[in-house]
Amino acid sequence: MAAITTGTDAAATRAQPRGGSIRRNLLVSRILTYIALGGAVLLILFPVYWMLITSLKLPREIYRMPSLWPQVFTLENYRILLQDKEFLLPIRNSMIVAFAVTIISVLISSFAAYSMVRFRYRFKGLIGRLILFAYLTPTSLLFIPLSILMAQLGLGNSLHGLILVYLCFSLPLSTWLLQGYFRGVPRELEEQGMIDGLTRFGALLRIVLPLSAPGIAAVSIFTFTHAWNELLLALVLTTSESVRTAPLALNYLITSDVLPWGPLMAGATLSSVPLMILYFIAQRFMVQGMTAGSVKG
């Protein structure tokens, strides 16, 4: 009996160091994970922090003694931007363009994607490839043709023309993405709804679109972000100050060899606020939408 007890105690004694080493390894692994995550967060947020801090600095602190924390906080850069440069007008133009492109693009691409997923007709595969080809076409190849076309249509140097041009690039992407989300909706749900008296259009509105809401929200955010941040097409197609968008107005702040970093960072901060608010509100829909599109029907 004593020998059995002694053997059990010896086994327990050997097990204790092993369990302690496992806990230490888990603790070290957790610490290293938090260090890596903290480093990633700092790497991502530091440009945002530098942009915000620079917008609150005096010129002498920006050019002569750059530091991570300003000695004197000032809103002079924002005053110059809003009063002297009238930056609220480009913000308003960007709002108009981005919201119009997003609403029109999601509306049209919803019907287009639904027809590609649910209906059978000739050349459907070819149409799908053309949609993808239109999305993959480099924007730089279309500057001259689009500018000539907008001039002939009388839409040059206008927000209407800019919205129309942005739709040429956002519609293929929205249609291509929404096809994946609509495939995740079971066809049987639509058939059951039509048995209960719904038309095909009613099934789309009452069944498919509500079930695809996270995907539609994700596509809307992608479309809005692209229209809000786009610079090259706006630079080519618009010339008047009254129709400049926010990225274009920021570009025209650079007028000499010395960059006005204060107003530039203030403008970048103001331009980032709508997108930050949008992504913060729709964060849950973004995650759901990106995962929903991977489901195969």
Rank of each mutant, 00 (worst) to 15 (best):
L26Q: 13
L177W: 03
T269H: 09
M290H: 01
S67Y: 02
D9L: 13
L149I: 10
S29T: 10
S220K: 02
P70Q: 05
F222S: 02
R183P: 01
P138M: 12
L211F: 11
Y78S: 04
P138C: 12
E86R: 15
I35P: 06
L153H: 03
M290T: 11
S21F: 06
I277R: 04
R200C: 05
P172M: 01
S110K: 07
S212W: 10
G20N: 13
L204C: 09
Y78L: 06
A268M: 12
I148L: 12
V106M: 09
G7E: 13
L177T: 03
M116L: 14
L270K: 08
L141N: 09
A282T: 02
F46R: 02
F143G: 04
G193L: 09
I80F: 12
A134W: 00
I216P: 11
W69M: 12
G297R: 08
R200I: 11
E230F: 07
G19D: 10
I104R: 03
Y49I: 10
P274F: 09
R64D: 13
L173T: 00
L198E: 14
L107F: 15
S272W: 03
I127G: 02
G156C: 00
N77W: 09
I254Y: 06
A249V: 07
S105A: 11
T139I: 13
S294F: 05
S220P: 10
L233D: 02
G202A: 11
I91S: 05
M194D: 08
L146D: 02
R14D: 13
A11Y: 07
V117S: 13
L130T: 02
S242T: 15
L232H: 03
I104E: 03
E230T: 08
A100K: 01
S29E: 12
F87V: 06
S147T: 12
L177Y: 03
S110H: 10
G202S: 08
L248I: 10
R118H: 14
S94P: 03
R64S: 11
I127Y: 01
